[in-house]
Design a protein around this nucleic acid. Structure first.
Lengths: 205, 205
DNA sequence: GTCTATAACGTGATAGAC
DNA sequence: GTCTATCACGTTATAGAC
C-alpha cells in the first residue's frame, strides 16, 4: 500500500522540522521534500503552525510512549527499570537522534504549548520507579542523593551523546559505526555507573 | 562610561539570538531590545548574518576560553583537572545557561561555520589532560574505558541539567533557588562520580 | 551617527482551473 | 485532490535627509 499524500506530507514535515526547527523551515521545503505542491500542504493541514503542532506532539509521543510503561511496571525492581530504560532509549535514539534537540530547542522558545500537554510531573511523581526509589532510600539501601540528581544523571548520560554528536564527531574523527558501537557499550555501562553512584561509599572531598 | 551604540546592539543581539536562535530572530527585535533604530544595525554590522557570526564566535569563545587552560595545565593531576573543570563550567552556566543549547541548535543547522573555527580536535588530542589519561590507563591506575565515554559523561553530567532545565522545572516545580542549590551540589558530586567510574571494580552484568 | 521612508525580496496562504 | 498563479504581508537592507 503506497503512502497517502497526507502521510507523505507528514513524513516530509517531520524530516524538515526535525533538522531545521520551526522558524527556519519553509513550507516550500516541506512540499519539495514530499514531492507535492505547496497548495496541498494547506489543503491537508490548513497552516504551517497546525502541521508543526502535529509533528511536535508526534515526536514527544514517539519519544516517551515506549519508555513510560517501564517506570510503571510492578514486576521489575529499581535497577532493572534503569537497565530497560537505558537500552530502549538508546535504541530509540539510534534511529531518531534528532528528536531530543528538536524538542529542547522548541521548548525554550514556546514552553507552554509543549509542557502543558505532557504530564511529566505526574509521570515521575506517581511512578512505581519513584516509589521504589523512595523506599530504598528509606531502608538505607541507597545513598541519599536527590531524585533530581538521579534523573539528571540518567538523562544526561543517555541523551547527551546524541545531542552533542556533531562535536564528538569533530573531536575524534568518529565514524557513524564507531559511534553506534560506543552507544551499544553505554547500554551496559550506564546502569553500572548509576548503580555505583547510588550504592558505593561516597567520600566527599 | 556608558555603552557605545555598537555595544548596545551586540548585547541586544546576544540576548535575542540566544533565546530565539538565528531564524526566529527578527532584526527589528534586536533593534527594539537595543533601543535604537533598525538602520543602525546595518550601519554597524552590515547584515543580520554578519552580526550573528560575531555573536556565535563570541559565545563559543566565552564558553571555552575559561575552561581550556585547565586541560593544558602541567601542575595539576588528572582528577584535579576534572574538579576544576566541573566547578568552573557550572559557574559559567549559572550565569549563561542558554549558550550550550544555542550552540548545539545552530550547529545542527550549519555545522561548517562553527566547527571549522573551533579546533575541538586539537584541543582534546594534544591536551595534558589526554596525556595524563592515557598514561594512567597504561599504568592500570584507571579502568580502561574509552576516552569518548569519559568526555560524554563529563559533558553530559555537567551540561545536560542546564539544557533540560525547563523539563526539570516542570517535573518538580523546581524553583530557581533550588535548581542553583542542586548545581552547587553537583560541583562536588560529579568529580566523585567520575572517579568511581574510572577506579572502582566494574562488574559487567 | 542617527533617523524616516521605502525598495526588494521571500514566505505563508488562497483563488480558481482542471 | 491536485495543480498554477497570485495575493498579502513581513522582513532585510538601503537611500537619503538631518
Amino acid at each position: 500500500m503506497p503512502p497517502t499524500t497526507e502521510e507523505k506530507i507528514k513524513s516530509a514535515a517531520r524530516t524538515v522540522f526535525h533538522s531545521k526547527g520551526f522558524a527556519a523551515t519553509k513550507t516550500r521545503d516541506i512540499a519539495k521534500e514530499a514531492g507535492i505542491n505547496l497548495a496541498l500542504l494547506n489543503y491537508y493541514f490548513r497552516s504551517k503552525e497546525k502541521l508543526f503542532q502535529i509533528i511536535m506532539m508526534d515526536s514527544i509521543h514517539s519519544l516517551f510512549q515506549s519508555i513510560l510503561p517501564i517506570f510503571f511496571e510492578e514486576e521489575t525492581n529499581f535497577f532493572e527499570k534503569i537497565e530497560k530504560f537505558v537500552s530502549l532509549y538508546i535504541e530509540k535514539l539510534k534511529t531518531d537522534p534528532e528528536i531530543p534537540l528538536f524538542i529542547l530547542s522548541e521548548l525554550q522558545r514556546n514552553p507552554l504549548v509543549i509542557l502543558e500537554q505532557v504530564p511529566f510531573k505526574e509521570i515521575f511523581e506517581t511512578s512505581v520507579f519513584h516509589k521504589q526509589y523512595e523506599s530504598a532510600i528509606e531502608k538505607k539501601e541507597l545513598n541519599s542523593i536527590s531524585y533530581y540528581h538521579l534523573l539528571m544523571n540518567l538523562a544526561g548520560l543517555t541523551v547527551f551523546p546524541f545531542i552533542g554528536k556533531p562535536i564528538f564527531f569533530q573531536v575524534g574523527n568518529l565514524t557513524s559505526e564507531e559511534f553506534h558501537r560506543l552507544m551499544e557499550e553505554r547500554k551496559k555501562w550506564i546502569p553500572i555507573w548509576i548503580k555505583q553512584m547510588l550504592t558505593n561509599e561516597l567520600q566527599a572531598s
